[in-house]
Design a protein around this nucleic acid. Structure first.
Lengths: 226, 226
DNA sequence: ACAACGTATATTGTCAACAATACCTGAGTC
DNA sequence: GACTCAGGTATTGTTGACAATATACGTTGT
């Protein structure tokens, strides 16, 4: 996760990663008032590094802290998930545009290669779950970093994606439309390969828009109330 | 700054605010390897809360930490400032759109009132600096919160604006075009008042685009190399 | 019986001492 | 003279104990 692996891995970093994955995977349910001591014993940590990690997580909006009252995982509503996708739409649109302008040919080739891998997985009808979870993440991850926009990548990779993945784990949403999504991914990469930033932005926005509408539909059907 | 003033203000919060303003105002120069003890004596703090604040700041990208090597304020380049404005363009565009859909009539009235205040200040030719620094910030702040998009507002207010303000203090950029900016602000508010989200988004994007081009021009002229 | 208050407890916030590590200085060698 | 390597030092990371506060419970008064 960390870019160039700062040789020494501090306890606070460890705590941060543990907590983050625990929150994302749903091991720490939202709304729970969870004590620091519980967390310490759970992750074999002491309170110092733990508190530092809690501060970071709070700053990223994954949990909320009330002084002397405790920490709880942020409770999330379905409508907020939709809001997240609206943000993704504009930010990843920008990322796609800049990626088209700035990615190296090698990076584009790699991106196409990952898409082929994903296609193979879907055709074999196994690992659909993988494709939707990690594969999709991988695709968007590459474009975010390919934008060469440090802050943009940081916001997408460090904030938004974790929140989206949190929802995904919790509700196993984003189900369905694997072939559809792959096709959309292909078109986006095509536009990037042709260095057509405007088109790449348009396609990416439409892609995420479609994902959002898919989620909204599920909410309508009452499958997604949190 | 904190939304509903959590009665008790912890030392870590204090440290966080002190450091943030110090960074934004330029009292802590970027690139400086600044020691924890120095900071402690400077802000009358102890290392515990300080470290917690440092973690939060690092998480927000205002400073970088290398284990056992120290903390330094993130050094920023002119090109990265431009990248920031590209992000602002799409995010604030979205904010304007959602604000047009969701702001209360009262909020819109307040927004118009602040614009009148700003105009009076400019006409009196005093407080231009104020208008450009705090006034502009105030305008964008209101729209961000008016979007009713929690995460969007959090990202704009908690991350992007601090970075932009950091640059502003440091280079006293964003100079010029006060009347121009005010006119653009007025048109945006008009669109919001008419509940025309699409237009509000378009105008906001163009507004920030203009600001970005203004900065790029200065960079061309060599006035803004960092 | 219900409400309000005061106390008790458990949890969080804070502090100061200890341990580990990166950087710097100096000597030695090529 | 320049480079390498080793040790010292200062700074950071970590720990455990202490202080402050919010919640919960029991008591008391109406």
């Amino acid at each position: 996760m960390s870019e160039l692996a700062s040789q020494t891995y501090t306890r606070a970093d460890e705590a941060f990663d543990c907590l983050q994955t625990a929150i994302v995977k749903g091991d720490l349910a939202p709304g729970d008032k969870i004590g620091e001591l519980d967390l310490c014993s759970r992750f074999e940590l002491t309170r110092g590094p733990l508190r530092e990690a809690l501060g970071r997580l709070e700053s990223r909006g994954l949990l909320v802290r009330r002084p002397h009252a405790g920490v709880k995982v942020v409770s999330v509503s379905a409508s907020e998930l939709v809001e997240l996708y609206r943000i993704r739409e504009v930010m990843e649109g920008l990322a796609a545009r800049q990626a088209a302008e700035r990615m190296t040919d090698q990076e584009i080739a790699d991106l196409q290669a990952t898409l082929n891998t994903h296609e193979a997985m879907i055709d074999e009808a196994r690992g659909q779950a993988y494709y939707q979870a990690e594969g999709d993440y991988d695709f968007h991850h590459r474009i975010a970093t390919g934008s060469r926009n440090t802050k943009l990548a940081q916001m997408l990779l460090g904030d938004l994606y974790y929140m989206v993945r949190m929802y995904r784990y919790r509700l196993s949403t984003s189900a369905g439309r694997p072939h559809l999504a792959l096709g959309e991914h292909r078109r986006i990469v095509e536009a990037i390969a042709q260095r057509d930033g405007e088109l790449a932005e348009f396609l990416m926005k439409r892609h995420i828009n479609a994902a959002r509408k898919n989620i909204e539909k599920k909410i309508e059907e009452g499958l997604l109330t949190i």
